[in-house]
Design a protein around this nucleic acid. Sequence first.
DNA 1: CAGCTAACTAACCAAAGAGTTAAATATATT
DNA 2: AATATATTTAACTCTTTGGTTAGTTAGCTG
Lengths: 120, 120
Amino acid sequence: MTTRADDTLDAAFAALADPTRRAIVTRLARGDATVTELAAPFAMSLPGISKHLKVLEHGGLISRRRDAQFRPCHLEADALDGALDWITTNRRVWNERFDKLDALLDDLQPAKKRAGRARG
Amino acid sequence: MTTRADDTLDAAFAALADPTRRAIVTRLARGDATVTELAAPFAMSLPGISKHLKVLEHGGLISRRRDAQFRPCHLEADALDGALDWITTNRRVWNERFDKLDALLDDLQPAKKRAGRARG
DNA sequence: CAGCTAACTAACCAAAGAGTTAAATATATT
DNA sequence: AATATATTTAACTCTTTGGTTAGTTAGCTG
């Protein structure tokens, strides 16, 4: 089954899987910016940037309003949090395995706990 | 410029941008598993799963060792941390903007601080 | 050795992604 | 009304991705 949350995460992670788009997000974390401003640092056509912005928007990472002929882009931190939560949760499950192993070792031989434990 | 770290993040985020692969990561957070074990929950051919595993491996999210005819997969939490760090850092920059605004408002009119501040 | 299981590679296909140029739209300015 | 600026859409190309089936390699087991 493919859930709604799945689709959201798909789009968010996919949006982050490109260095140009990550740079745009980093720029927007400092404040809103227009398309031309965002495009400036890159050796890429404006329609190219426009496509990247569409991907970011689809991933929920940015929103755009209209201001005269400008389309200022705005970072939506909630989407960032969604991705953050997924990773954090899985990371925690991973750690809990070792916490339980530690507890087991504590029970069995307190003096040698953590001995020989391989984590990476 | 495209850095080494960029490529690493590209591959890690791209690997996470698929529900099948995220499910595999979630499964592996609970412990190592063979390819057939990982494939079991999915209506997908084994070569299909094998390709997903290759994507995860390329993204640094898993490693594989050989055990007789089995190839147990192992979650590499460091790659997860890399993605986590990128998001966390950008998230923090985003928050700092508002912290600075709060400080400014504190200076100007202590009694009304945070009034009218829009965050989402 | 023969046969079984686990996993991979090869070859193919359809769909999506990332980029381009050229043309269109929306708004502001003169 | 004409022109300039900001941005998008359209159409096209090339590459990558996600999936398939069929065949192959590696290792165990009888």
